[in-house]
């Protein structure tokens, strides 16, 4: 019995590593896309131009009000089903791009709401102090307010980041070859192993360790920003 697991283990780990690399890639691409896009969306939702503000708030409502899995399915299948033109292609690359788009849109809406609160929480006096010193609006934002905002939103952003790590598993629904997909492959049969469910369970370890590392790193960043109040 034990022998079987010892034999399977290196094969499974190898496959899971490859899958996890795709998980990691999706995580990073989402973060790199959604953080700046979220900031832009937060400006839109604070805009003094009412039609823009209402439009942005409507989009945020829809995106936050529907499951990410449904959004992913719609983004991936809708063009092919309705326009008979699968813009994403059937390959892994196409699936990855479609997934990235869905994740970036979804997460940027969540991030934007956190940013919005963070910007609103900075005292008006900071703007005024910048203005009377002759600074431009963008200098005030980037040189005065941004770091204060980052400090105040780091705890909720950290939370979203840990959730994002786990949410990447939703990409399994359109057969993106991430770590869950890689684990599940050993149930149907792959590389001479079939009918095994333990590799799927074992993927949890990957998420757990990666989130552990992130928790430590984000905690360090939070500590680093404690130099001011």
């Amino acid at each position: 019995m034990m022998d079987r697991y010892i034999e399977q283990f290196p094969v499974v780990i190898n496959a899971l590593n490859i899958g996890f690399l795709q998980t990691l890639k999706l995580f990073l691409v989402t973060l790199i896309g959604a953080l700046p896009l979220g900031l832009i969306i937060s400006f839109g939702s604070r805009s003094k131009f009412i039609p823009l503000k209402l439009l942005v708030r409507f989009i945020i409502w829809v995106v936050r009000g529907t499951p990410l899995m449904i959004q992913l399915l719609i983004i991936y299948y809708f063009p092919g089903l309705v326009f008979h033109n699968n813009i994403w292609g059937g390959q892994e690359t196409g699936r990855f791009i479609a997934t990235s788009v869905a994740f970036i849109v979804n997460y940027s809406c969540y991030f934007s709401e956190i940013f919005r609160g963070g910007i609103a929480g900075i005292p008006k006096g900071q703007d005024e102090a910048g203005l009377v010193l002759g600074l431009t609006k963008s200098e005030i934002f980037f040189k005065v307010k941004l770091l204060q905002m980052v400090k105040s939103i780091l705890p909720p952003i950290s939370n979203e980041i840990l959730t994002l790590v786990k949410d990447t598993s939703l990409a399994r629904i359109i057969a993106l070859q991430e770590v869950i997909w890689a684990g599940q492959a050993f149930m149907k049969g792959s590389q001479g192993i079939s009918g095994e469910i333990w590799p799927l369970f074992f993927t949890a370890i990957y998420y757990l360790i990666f989130n552990g590392i992130l928790t430590v790193l984000l905690g360090k960043l939070e500590k680093k920003l404690e130099y001011f109040k």
């Binding site: 005292p123 006096g125 900071q126 102090a129 005065v144 770091l147 130099y227 001011f228």
Partner: peptide, 9 residues
Amino acid sequence: FQSFNLFPQ
């Protein structure tokens, strides 16, 4: 200003 409004960082 009354409340200083120094830049904390």
